[in-house]
Write a protein that binds this DNA or RNA. Structure first.
Lengths: 250, 250
DNA sequence: TAAAATTGAATGAATTTGATTGATTTTTTA
DNA sequence: TAAAAAATCAATCAAATTCATTCAATTTTA
């Protein structure tokens, strides 16, 4: 049996059952455990499924967003590292746009620059920013319940009243061809606008975001400097051809 | 049975029953107590549930700190009464401006009208509004730390994008000569603008506000209907000469 | 045909599992 | 109320399963 056919069978069985045992796949394909293991490894690298002990499991759909709560606990350590580094880029007197989202949120405790102004569309960010006695402006607009972010026409309009030294943007996918992406077109447009209003743009993307792409395009890679904790040299080299990449090491 | 499948079963049973006994999970998954215990431990670490003696429970947050906040305010009972009455004035399909502040905040739990849109400058209000599945817009602007209200040029500008069927305004003073007043001129201007953008304006003022006046003038009495719990007939008669007064009785 | 890629088997390492232990908590009983 | 009984718990261990890695055999490709 050919590799693509096996892969098709594996993914199909997975679709039907949500989780599938290694043994069932051996049964279905009539080939050895080793082969199936190799297939699962590869499919996992391609983000088509998630390996689990004893088999494989379906991973959540591309366009479906996780709740804020789930997001906030995922890759928290990596996000903190990235946040800390990103925060160190802020200089005294800067005007900053801080995108909504859990990754950019992690920057706030590490901000040390004085006399800065921060504009944000993230309601969650406000309390933390005020706690640090940072002059904070909020853009107006519609409140998206799921992410607690301000989006829509009003938000864009509100945003356009400002211009920034630097902006820090969170994304859901970074892809060599599709650039920076996020599931919601409204949010994508918001992020895009912020990038265009800024002298320098930074995208914060932990390693789980690389080689991913979701529905709505924000901007091509070269429009922002990417900050990531990815360590795979080969992968990084690929992105470095297209844009500036700052790698955070733990 | 694979780990993700067990986890799914556990979480699903939990969704249905709120709390679930260890023994039921053993029954449902046909595996040992130890395994279930380990699963529960892990799911608890992932904040997917809360372990309790004998099993697990759904985790519920927020509610409590809200009540703490509610109790910390002055004249809470009167404000609730006023809030309840004011909320009853909202009709299906209305576009509403809800001013920041504790009095207007009390309206939210009592809002029953369907298909309404609420614009607010109060950050505290957001969570409660979203909880009630109300379409919510926030004005942009500078965040005043003390009151968690959005004010300033940006806020005014943002507000002027809308027009309202009704607005509900909190004030610090109501005075027969000076009209409605509040200490901060920026906030006063915000409230004034909202009143002018609304077909009908309501000022919520518990009895402690009457015959008081503070620094910044919002509007003369006749520009808004006053909702109060004051009972002094003589006092009320005085105000009723100048404007419409709605009296809430406990 | 030779080089490269794929496959299945074999190895020991790593993970998961259920049973057991004694400690802790809850309920029952006196 | 306090002691006893029952239930539940965390910690540990050994057996079973699953895993990654290696290597030789086979198939595919150039």
């Amino acid at each position: 049996m050919l590799t693509p056919e096996r892969h098709r069978i594996i993914l199909q069985l997975l679709q039907e059952k949500e989780v599938v045992k290694l043994h069932e796949l051996v049964e279905a394909t009539q080939c050895s455990e080793s082969t199936i293991r190799r297939d699962l490894s590869q499919l996992e690298k391609e983000k088509k499924l998630k390996r689990v002990h004893g088999g494989a499991a379906l991973l959540q759909q591309k366009r479906e967003e996780l709740s804020v709560f789930e997001k906030s606990t995922k890759n928290i350590h990596e996000k903190q590292l990235i946040g800390k580094y990103a925060a160190s880029l802020i200089q005294d007197g800067d005007c900053i746009y801080l995108d909504a989202g859990t990754t950019t949120f992690q920057m706030i405790p590490y901000i040390e620059a004085k006399n800065i102004v921060v504009v944000t569309n993230g309601i969650m960010h406000i309390e933390a920013l005020l706690e640090k006695d940072i002059q904070t402006y909020l853009v107006g607009g519609f409140i998206k319940k799921k992410t607690n972010a301000l989006i829509g026409r009003g938000a864009i309009h509100s945003l356009q009243q400002y211009s920034f030294d630097k902006c820090f943007i969170g994304v859901n996918g970074v892809h060599i061809d599709f650039g920076y992406t996020t599931p919601d077109p409204e949010e994508a447009f918001m992020k895009q606008t912020a990038i265009h209003l800024s002298q320098r743009a930074f995208v914060l993307a932990d390693h789980s975001k690389l080689n991913e792409s979701t529905f709505a395009k924000i901007a091509p890679l070269q429009e922002a400097t990417m900050i990531t904790d990815e360590t795979d040299e080969e992968l990084l080299a690929m992105y470095e051809e297209k844009t500036t990449v700052e790698v955070v090491k733990s």
